[in-house]
């Protein structure tokens, strides 16, 4: 295994990150440090670069410029992927396979120990144990999102990257999501999530930042603002 590039306690350390698609800058000069057990909410209007930032952190994209280290390793190292759980806009689930088969595939790919027990535990935690043998193709949007959450957390990652995780979830799904994230927070996991709902995310987040036109326009200090204050910041910084 490759040694960390530097001795660091940061989970995420980004310096002057830049990402362009076909010469169009999507992220510009992003610098931030995320410590273990932080829960960071990323907010911003559509097209601000939230998804691109999370995809960069998930190692699905490579930065055009700048430096990104995850757990002290360069983001290009395979080792860091084992520590990351990513929930994107798409579920990454094979529609013709059942939840059990999908999770078995991902579990084998991540070399999860005691895989059968772990899958049963994950399916139960997202309330899908009764649908474990039904092909994912027949699932509703919300059920697929819940299964996708189980997939992202199957290998017990240390960094959760969640891109609008509440999209398409019913009240039961939302409470499952919140319980899972609260549990992760208690266990000292690091969470970064994008959302449009500050009020709901506020209960979980320890820090918030606003992205606008590919830059970090504002970030909170130790204390999060009230929802009313946040709306004022949001309006002022995304003008």
């Amino acid at each position: 295994m490759t040694q960390p590039t530097q001795q660091t306690s940061w989970v995420v350390e980004a310096r002057n990150l830049r990402k362009t698609f076909a010469w169009t800058p999507v992220l510009n000069d992003i610098s931030c440090r995320i410590a273990p057990a932080e829960v960071v909410g990323i907010f911003g209007p559509n097209g601000a670069g939230k998804t691109t930032l999370l995809r960069l952190l998930a190692t699905l994209l490579t930065p055009t410029a700048g430096r990104l280290t995850l757990f002290g390793f360069a983001s290009s190292e395979l080792t860091v992927r084992r520590k990351i759980g990513f929930l994107g806009h798409e579920s990454y689930l094979y529609p013709d396979l059942t939840p059990e088969e999908n999770l078995t595939f991902y579990g084998k790919a991540y070399q999860v120990p005691n895989l059968k027990d772990r899958i049963a535990q994950q399916l139960e935690s997202v309330g899908l144990q009764d649908w474990r043998t039904m092909p994912v193709r027949y699932f509703s949007r919300g059920m697929e999102q819940r299964l996708s959450l189980a997939r992202a957390l199957l290998h017990a990652p240390d960094l959760f990257l969640l891109d609008e995780p509440d999209a398409g979830l019913d009240p039961r799904g939302l409470s499952t999501l919140h319980a899972t994230l609260a549990q992760a927070k208690d266990r000292g996991k690091t969470v970064m999530l994008t959302s449009h709902d500050f009020e709901r995310s506020r209960e979980l987040c320890t820090r918030a930042l606003i992205l606008h036109r590919g830059r970090i326009a504002w970030q909170s200090d130790a204390a999060l603002p009230s929802p009313q204050e946040f709306i004022e910041f949001y309006t002022a910084y995304t003008r």
């Binding site: 395979l78 080792t79 990454y92 689930l93 991902y106 790919a109 997939r151």
Partner: peptide, 12 residues
């Protein structure tokens, strides 16, 4: 379909 290839690339 469902961008599973990205899921594959996320794996170590």
């Amino acid at each position: 379909e469902r961008n599973c290839f990205a899921g594959l690339l996320l794996c170590p």
